[in-house]
Every structure is written in C-alpha cells, then in structure tokens.
Design a binder for these strands. Structure first.
Lengths: 233, 233
DNA sequence: GTCTATATGGAGATAGAC
DNA sequence: GTCTATCTCCATATAGAC
C-alpha cells in the first residue's frame, strides 16, 4: 500500500513512518478544504508541523503526495464498506445489504476520514496524468455498489421503473454530498443515517417490500440475463 | 445583475457586452473543470479567444470574475426552478411540486449551464472573502427547497420517520452530484430524470400516497406547529 | 477594446549545512 | 531527517502602444 522512504533501516513504526503519516494526514486535511490546485506544500507543512522541504524527504513530488491521499481515501472506503458487507449473515436481503452500505459509507466519510472527503471533492479536478490510479480504485468502489444493486434487481427488490445505474449513482451522490452540508452541531450523525436509510430503502423498494422484507437467500435462477446488467457500469 | 465596464457608451448588446459574456462563459467552463485555485486567466482567455490582459478591461480582478460566475450560476438556477414552480396550477400537490423541482434542477444543471456546475463544485473551496455573496444566493435556493419540504410535511405527505432537513439535503445532493457522473452517451437525460423523480417521490412519500396522490389544495389547518419546521434551515 | 512588454510575488523544487 | 538559503518558473496585474 504505502511507498516507503529511501531509508528503510527504520522499523515500520519508526519516526520516519510517523512523520510520513503526519504529512499524509495534513495533506488530506488541506486537500479536502482547498482543492487540488489550492493545496500548497507550505500549508501542508504547517499543519504537519514541519518545514516544506522536509516533505521531499518522504515524497518525490507534490503530485505523488496528493495522488496517494486521493488513492488511499477511496481505497480505504472500499475496504471499509466491503468489510461491513462481508460480516453480514449470508441470508441478509439485498435491501438490508444496501442499507448497511449506506450506513458504512456515511459513517466512514463523516466520522473517520478527511481522506475520503478529499478524494470525493477533488476527483473531478485531477489533471489527466493523475487520474489513472485514482479511477481504478474508484471503479473498485463503484463495483461494490453495482453488485448490491444488481443483486437487488435480480431478486426483484427494485421497482422496475428505476434505471439501475441512474438510481445507484443518485444514491451515491446523496451520500457523497453529505460531506458538504453535514455539521455535527446541526443534528446527529445517527439522525442523518436513519433518514438516509429510510429514504433509500423506500426509494428503491417495490411498495410491497417496503415495510418488512423477508430475509431470503439470493435466488440466482430467477434472473433474466444477469450478464446484461453486469456490463452496465 | 451585471456590472458594466467603465465605458458605458456602447449599447446593451454591443461588442463590449458580448466580449464580457464570452469571458464569463469561458470562466465558467474552466472553473467547472479546474477548480477555483486552478482557474488561470490565460486559460480563460484562451477559451474566450483573446489575450489575458484584455480581461482586465471588463473585470477589475480575477476574483471578481470568478465571484460573478459563482453567483450567477446559483442565482440563475434559483430563478429557473422558482419560475417552473410558479407556473404550476395552485392545486398541485406537494410531492408533485417536488418532482417538478427535481426535473427543473436536473435539466438546468445538466443541459444548460457550466455556471451551475462551477458553482456547485467550487462552493466549498471559496476563500472566506468571496463567500458572502455566493452564500446569500445559495441560501435563497435552499429556501425554495425548504418551502417545498415544509409544505409536504405540513400536509402529511412526508413519512414521519424522515428528518426533514436531512432528507432535503440528501435529495439535493443526489441532484447536485449528477453533474459528476452523467454522460449523455451513457443514457438519456430523460431517463435520469424519470428515475430521480421516482426515487425521490417513493423515498419521501407515505406509502399510501406513492401511487397516485390526489391533487388537493394545501390544508393549512392540518399542520401541527408549522413554526417548528420553518426554523429548521 | 485589445494588444505586447514587463514588474512583482508566490510556489515547487534543489543544495547543502547540521 | 529536518533545516536555511536559493533557484526557477509561472500567474496576476499594470503600462502603454495601436
């Protein structure tokens, strides 16, 4: 995951590694607030409590530093959400799984991590030469959600008038945007999560299934052309 | 709305006014893609097909140019959506009104205007001294939506487990985010709009009202403490 | 009104001391 | 490993020709 500085004699938790982490944290903080072009190394250095040239001991360039922040922001989100999904009992219904993803995403984004906010806010502003690595990881996260929606569709849990891709992206947008407006002083995170889950479930589910969805196993043979939706990234 | 250049002898549709507009359009284009700090006047000039110093004949500074793009992006959106709402028959139900706002917002944002995308993407990155005018206008737009949701709540059209403010911001987020992913080559705008309307209506409505809401008049006296939600900005 | 030429300052990056 | 000093480049902004 992490590139190590040239001097590899120090142990994994040594001073160098800790300084490097401090620089990454500071960069995520600045990046999430000032944007890609507005992120200056002097500001990063100030937050990390060192002088700007010291950053070059740990990172070869400003761009590499920023790229690592962006990449790890979305990569950690992917791992976190997937981990929560993997921990569910196998018989969990598709809408319940989506609710878990909604909660995991919001919690991670709003509670844990400047990285994710930095990634989400700046994805559209990256110069072309920095996009590749980030987009590969962003697609991995998109795939997590695509699988959730495909499963729901396959089991007939999605209302048929919904376009699966549009619905998925609209839901993700609602979650991503929360970083722009949520303020702990204006309402608890739990309140936001509860509303988001309710909104998403009711928005997606066929009316009969809203109230209480039976916890049934995925029924693969009920699918009509599963390959079709799989290509719909 | 628009500041005029020093030379006011030219008519409203004169060459100066047209050049000024070209600069604004170019700035919106660059701003929506490169972000606030990444917007360079040479890039704006290139898109507008003139030399960078010529911009200073029409705008006193880079900041004033950007501020005007941001401000007019959100101001035009507000006017557009409000206008669509005002054109509805007075007996239109609150969820139907919300659907109209959803469609107006998406159409304007995705079809018409780099300005709105520029405003939405860069709102979080504005330096403090540029925020005031933009935020005043953004609040005006927020008020349009707040009134829609307050009306829906007052008439009992919103599910009671939803937090009105959180639900409103989640819906707006879903719409705002569409600019990040929608691509006309991946699906029609109409398809996105149809899905968004369906998702929002089903997500908000009390189950009984999903299918076909009676077009009834607002019933003010049914409200419980209307002042409560009004202060919930 | 728009151009060319240029003053000014700020940011990334490097050299080399400690 | 982190610092101070410095190089270089580039963007805003101005001066002044046309």
């Amino acid at each position: 995951m992490a590139r190590k500085p040239a001097n590899t004699t120090s142990s994994a938790g040594g001073k160098s590694a800790r300084t490097r982490q401090r620089i990454l944290d500071a960069a995520a903080h600045v990046l999430s607030r000032k944007g890609f072009a507005g992120t200056r190394l002097t500001d990063v250095a100030e937050v990390a409590e060192l002088q700007a040239p010291a950053i070059y001991y740990h990172f070869p360039s400003r761009e590499e530093l920023i790229e690592e922040v962006m990449w790890s922001g979305i990569a950690n989100m992917t791992d976190h959400v997937q981990q929560q999904l993997d921990a569910l009992p196998p018989e969990t219904g598709p809408l319940d799984r989506i609710e878990v993803a909604v909660e995991s995403h919001l919690r991670y984004q709003l509670e844990t991590s400047d990285y994710t906010t930095a990634a989400i806010r700046n994805a559209g502003q990256l110069p072309d030469n920095m996009r590749a690595r980030y987009e590969a990881e962003a697609n991995r996260y998109g795939d997590v959600w695509r699988r959730l929606f495909d499963a729901a569709k396959r089991e007939g849990a999605l209302r048929p008038d919904l376009d699966a891709r549009a619905a998925r992206m609209l839901v993700l947008g609602a979650l991503n945007w929360a970083a722009e407006w949520w303020n702990p002083r204006r309402g608890t995170l739990d309140q936001v999560i509860r509303t988001a889950k309710s909104l998403v479930r009711a928005g997606l589910a066929v009316p009969e299934a809203v109230e209480a969805e039976p916890m049934r196993k995925p029924q693969r043979s009920r699918a009509r052309k599963p390959a079709k939706t799989a290509s719909n990234r």
